[in-house]
Amino acid sequence: MQSGVTITETKEKTSTELEGTWDVVVFDDPVNLMGYVTKVFEKVFGYPRERAEHLMMTVHLDGKALVWTGTRERAELYAQQLQSYQLQASLEKAG
C-alpha cells in the first residue's frame, strides 16, 4: 500500500510540474544551411518568411533561439518535428 501512495504522489507532482507554458528552443549546429533552417521554421510553425529568417539568424548568432511558447503537449510535438528535420531542439519551462 505504501508504494501505491508514493506512485500516486509522484504522478501528481509530475503532472503539476508539466503544467503551465513551455518554450521550444532550437540550438545552432555546424552544418545546417541557413535557408534550410528558415524553411523548417516556416513549415513546422507556419511562420511568415520574415519571422522565420529572424529566428534563424538568432540561432546562428546567439547559438540558440526561443522559437515557440505554449502547452507542454504541443511543445513536445514541435520539438519532435524539429528533430526529425535534424535540428537540435529542447523544452524549457517558460519563465
Binding site: L18, F27, L87, Q88, S90
Partner: peptide, 11 residues
C-alpha cells in the same frame, strides 16, 4: 540521441 540530448526526463 544527440538531437534530443537536452530534452528532460519527463518527456
Amino acid at each position: 540521441s544527440r538531437l534530443s540530448a537536452l530534452m528532460d526526463d519527463e518527456s
